[in-house]
C-alpha cells in the first residue's frame, strides 16, 4: 500500500537570511579567469628561466641571455633592419599565398562541378600533399633561378594542396537541404558555388587557410635559410642565417623571436578577427 504523504507549501526566504546571492569577484579571481593573463604569466616565467639559464651557462655563443636577445632585437628594430627584413618576407609570402589560394579555389570548384575534376583533385592532392614543399626547392632553383620566383613556386606548392583539400571536403559536407535551397532559387554554376557552397563551407575553408598559412610561413623561412638572398636584401630567414655566420647569436635568437611573433600575430589577430566576423557571428562555430 502506498504511503500517505502530506501536501505542503513553503514561503521562500527573502532578505539577508539567504546569505550571498550575488557578489562581485575579487580582482585576483577575475584576472586569473582571463586566458591571456594566465598565458602572460607563463611567458614571464619562461623569460625568467631563460635569463637564469643564460647567466648560469655564461656562453653567449651557445645560449645568449634573454636580456642580450632583447637588446639585439631592439637594435635590429631601431636600425630599421628588422622592419625591412619582415617586409621582404611578408611580401613574398603574400604573393605565394594568394596564388596558392586562387589555384586551390579553381581546383576545388572544378572538383565540385565535374566528376573528372574530383578525380583530378584527389589524384593531385594524394600525390603532392605528402611531398614537403622544401624538397622542390633544388628543382625550383633550376627552373626559376635564384630569386623570388623560386620561393613563390615552393610557397604555392605548400599552400595549394592543403587549401584545396580542405575546401573540397567543406563543399562535400554542405547539407543537402542548403543545396536544394540554392537550386530552388535558380542558382547554378559559378553563382551557386559563390553564394551557397563557399559561405556554407566557410568553417572548413577557414581551417584550410590557417593550415595553408602555417605551411607557407615555415616553408618560406626554411627556403630563405637555404639560399635566402635575392638581389641585396633578404628576408627573415636570411637575417638568421647571416647572423649565424657572423656568430651574432643574440641576433639569431632575435630573428627566431620575430618569426614566432609574426606567426602569433597572424594566428591570433588576423585569423581570430576573421573568425569572429564570420563563422562565429553566423553560429557555425563556437
Amino acid at each position: 500500500m502506498a504511503l500517505e504523504r502530506n501536501e505542503f507549501i513553503r514561503r521562500s526566504v527573502v532578505g539577508k537570511a539567504t546569505g550571498v546571492v550575488q557578489k562581485p569577484l575579487g580582482a585576483w579571481e577575475r584576472l586569473y579567469g582571463q586566458a591571456w593573463a594566465r598565458k602572460l604569466f607563463l611567458l614571464v616565467l619562461l623569460g625568467i628561466v631563460w635569463e637564469a639559464y643564460g647567466l648560469y651557462l655564461g656562453n653567449e655563443l651557445l645560449f645568449p641571455t634573454f636580456g642580450a636577445t632583447m637588446k639585439a632585437l631592439w637594435d635590429a628594430v631601431a636600425s630599421g633592419e628588422m622592419a625591412s627584413r619582415m617586409a621582404v618576407s611578408l611580401k613574398v609570402l603574400l604573393i605565394g599565398y594568394s596564388i596558392g589560394v586562387a589555384l586551390a579555389a579553381l581546383l576545388a570548384t572544378t572538383a565540385i562541378t565535374t566528376r573528372i575534376g574530383t578525380d583530378l583533385l584527389e589524384t593531385l592532392t594524394s600525390m603532392f600533399n605528402p611531398l614537403p614543399a622544401i624538397a622542390l626547392l633544388p628543382l625550383a632553383l633550376i627552373w626559376f633561378g635564384l630569386g623570388t620566383g623560386s620561393i613563390v613556386f615552393v610557397l604555392v606548392h605548400s599552400v595549394l594542396w592543403a587549401v584545396a583539400l580542405a575546401t573540397h571536403s567543406g563543399f562535400l559536407s554542405v547539407s543537402n537541404t542548403l543545396r536544394m535551397v540554392g537550386r530552388n532559387y535558380g542558382l547554378t554554376g559559378f553563382r551557386y558555388v559563390a553564394k551557397i557552397l563557399i559561405p556554407a563551407a566557410f568553417p572548413s575553408i577557414l581551417a584550410g587557410l590557417k593550415i595553408g598559412w602555417a605551411f607557407a610561413w615555415r616553408t618560406l623561412i626554411a627556403a630563405e635559410l637555404v639560399f635566402g638572398v635575392s638581389s641585396g636584401s633578404g628576408g627573415l630567414g636570411w637575417f638568421i642565417y647571416e647572423n649565424k655566420n657572423e656568430l651574432e647569436i643574440p641576433s639569431v635568437f632575435a630573428g627566431l623571436l620575430a618569426v614566432i611573433a609574426i606567426g602569433f600575430v597572424i594566428e591570433n589577430v588576423v585569423f581570430a578577427t576573421l573568425e569572429k566576423a564570420t563563422v562565429r557571428k553566423w553560429g557555425m562555430q563556437h
Partner: peptide, 19 residues
C-alpha cells in the same frame, strides 16, 4: 526543371542560410 515558380519549404531547420 527546378525553378522559383515552385518554392519548397523543408522540414530541416538548416534550410536558412546561417550567414
Amino acid at each position: 526543371r527546378a525553378g522559383p515558380d515552385r518554392v519548397m519549404v523543408f522540414q530541416e531547420f538548416d534550410q536558412l542560410l546561417p550567414w
